[in-house]
Design a protein around this nucleic acid. Structure first.
Length: 401
DNA sequence: AATTTCACG
DNA sequence: ACGTACGTGAAATTA
């Protein structure tokens, strides 16, 4: 209920975008898309709707027969999703072009074209809606437009984030995100002493995990080992299997199983915690977050192993994802209150699950940085300390670095 | 309205 | 043999 007022203010405040920059980028995307499309149609030997997965599947796997190992979706169509197409990139040069076409088309049709149209006629800003009663875990969701999935992972995607800018030269954007909040929560909830200690000492958690899992000193950990340990740390939060880890890391199932077994030997309290939370779900019919938000899991005792497995992964994940959502909500209420009491002109304008975005008025940067660090970092003390990263810049992209 | 794909944490 | 990591929203096609 208190958060409702905070969300109302963020929705009304909105965020400014550089429409000219987006339109220019849209023109560049258009040229690339036209070129890619004509190359693909030429290689296919006939015109078809490239935006139709069904037509694309027929062209690739029946007409062109680029591979005999076509995969089908559950409704019997040829699967053409990114992970499937990536496996066929070596089979024909057209596949790489299709993947690039898909990426650029997504950026243009979902962000570059619609966003300028959504600027409010009165203040010229973009106003999202934050929903508090949609998700199963207690996270917020954002719609109309969704400002929680603005691209960042690719260079072309970041062009869109660069177009989210302050209202004028006397403001900057500030992005503040929680560092590894879900891993800190699993460390705290399971009371794993070694993981808590690593967070207390500010040690790189993925390197520390790699050292444990591979039984080698921290200073000898390779990039590959750190990257694998990172994948395991994330997989754990979701109840991932050896199969899933193997697929993610492109290693054999046997190797994946060895890594997971070693992980649980080194972090026995985390293994115990995961077993306990599943047992709790079986007994109570629900699991809960640090603030007692419940997720009911009616399938937890299902005789169907697949259905039951899904519920068990939900039982593991929901308290972690949901507690992180609790923490940032408490922080948002505290930050808003403190900003009001100090009479600041700066505004909190967006939330993206583990980060808050502010439009900072010139002269308030130092004070706001201190305020936000204090309120976010201390929102809900856990056995593992919370930590935040602060970034500032002339665009959301710059601030997020 | 359902399906497929893909953008984010 | 089964299916295999959680949570969302939007665009486009198809039924």
């Amino acid at each position: 209920m208190p958060l409702m007022y905070v969300l109302k203010n963020m929705e009304i405040e909105g965020i400014n975008i550089d429409v000219e920059a987006l339109n220019k980028f849209g023109g560049e995307l258009n040229e690339d898309l036209i070129r890619l499309k004509s190359e693909i149609i030429e290689a296919a030997g006939e015109d078809f709707n490239l935006d139709s997965p069904r037509q694309l599947g027929t062209i690739l796997f029946e007409k062109m027969q680029i591979s005999s190992k076509a995969k089908k979706t559950k409704t019997g169509q040829y699967a053409t999703s990114e992970d499937v197409l990536q496996k066929h990139e070596k089979d024909h040069p057209i596949v790489g072009d299709i993947l690039e076409y898909r990426q650029l088309k997504k950026l243009k049709s979902t962000y570059v074209d619609p966003l300028p149209e959504l600027c409010d006629p009165v203040d010229g800003r973009i106003h999202t809606s934050f929903m508090q009663t949609v998700t199963a875990t207690g996270r917020l969701s954002s719609n109309n437009p969704n400002l929680q999935n603005i691209p960042i992972r690719t260079a072309k995607g970041r062009e869109i984030r660069k177009a989210f800018v302050p209202r004028d030269n006397s403001h900057q954007l500030m992005a503040v995100d929680y560092s590894q909040i879900e891993l800190r929560i699993i460390a705290a909830l399971s009371d794993d002493k070694s993981m808590i200690e690593a967070f207390k000492n500010g040690i790189d958690i993925h390197t520390a995990t790699a050292s444990k899992v591979f039984h080698t000193p921290v200073d000898t950990i390779t990039r590959e080992q750190r990257s694998q340990a990172k994948a395991v740390n994330f997989g754990i939060i979701y109840g991932q299997s050896a199969f899933g880890l193997a697929q993610n890391l492109n290693i054999s199932r046997k190797e994946a199983k060895q890594i997971i077994d070693s992980y649980f030997e080194e972090y026995p309290t985390i293994k115990k915690y995961m077993e306990n939370v599943v047992a709790e779900a079986r007994e109570q019919g629900y699991v809960k977050t640090v603030l007692n938000r419940r997720r009911y899991l009616p399938d937890i005792n299902s005789t169907n192993a697949i259905v039951r497995g899904y519920a068990e992964r939900n039982a593991i994940n929901a308290p972690i994802q949901g507690s992180a959502a609790d923490v940032i909500k408490v922080a948002m209420v505290a930050v808003q209150k403190e900003m009001f009491e100090r009479g600041l002109k700066s505004k909190m304008i967006l939330q993206v699950h583990d980060e808050l975005i502010f439009e900072v008025a010139k002269g308030e940067l130092e004070q706001l940085t201190e305020l936000v660090r204090k309120e976010m970092g201390g929102a809900y003390p856990l056995k593992a300390p919370l930590d935040v990263n602060v970034g500032v810049g002339k665009s959301w992209d710059e601030a997020a670095h």
